[in-house]
Design a protein around this nucleic acid. Structure first.
Lengths: 118, 118
DNA sequence: GTAATATATGAACAGATGTTCAAATGTTCG
DNA sequence: CGAACATTTGAACATCTGTTCATATATTAC
């Protein structure tokens, strides 16, 4: 609505392509979810946490120690990662052990690596 | 340095695992670069732009029209995407045509999709 | 050259995001 | 039970990020 406010008020638009591609786009929600997933990998702390968990499941304290960060900061990030189903946890006595939910982290990280090294 | 300020001042740390994993971690720079790459996919606008370009190369104006966004906003994002080498451009008369640099976008997006649909 | 078109750019602003700090929760052990 | 331990949580703060608006650059057409 209010089509051409700051848009191209002009003729550069290729109507045929625009119409075709408009129809091919996934709906808003799918794109939102995807972006949300990749956001998880877009922060250094979370990235480090995932790398750590690729090596071994671990309690919060261990991760904090390895990364040299506050236990609280790690806990906050773990919660976010958990909400996106990339990691899970189980209680083991006083500790809570975090681990990767499945192999998706590995494959996504690897795809990223491939792009970097070129 | 200043090891245990807010860290685990306590005994929960599993020294063996911690030491082992510390050594296995990639260096700071690699992780930073990876996170930076995934940041590109972590924003709805950029995600949409990439989806659009998966269908067809296109000028800035077309993308703005398809997404119903300002030409300026798109231009800003294109610059960011270009800086991460995910897209490139060529001039064609008055227009500048943007297109995906290689197949990485497709494979990364697909990996993401796989995680979503489960 | 000048006007028109297509895109880029910079500063400003608003909203999102990550860390810190202090305090709360929940578990184990004596 | 109460003390100690491991983790979570919430509010506050600072930083980062994306969009807007106004303006600048660059190409084409006359």
């Amino acid at each position: 609505m209010a089509d051409d406010m700051q848009l191209c008020e002009t003729q550069c638009v290729h109507k045929d392509i625009v119409e075709k591609v408009k129809k091919l786009l996934p709906d808003e929600e799918a794109i939102y979810d995807l972006a949300d997933l990749f956001k998880m990998f877009g922060d250094t702390t979370r990235m480090k946490i995932m790398y750590v968990l690729l090596e071994s499941e671990m309690c919060v304290c261990d991760i904090a120690e390895i990364l040299g960060m506050t236990q609280s900061a790690i806990s906050h990030q773990l919660r976010i990662l958990k909400s996106s189903k990339l990691i899970t946890s189980r209680r083991e006595g006083k500790s809570i052990i975090y681990f990767l939910a499945d192999d998706h982290v590995r494959s996504i990280v690897n795809q990223g690596m491939e792009h970097i090294f070129e």
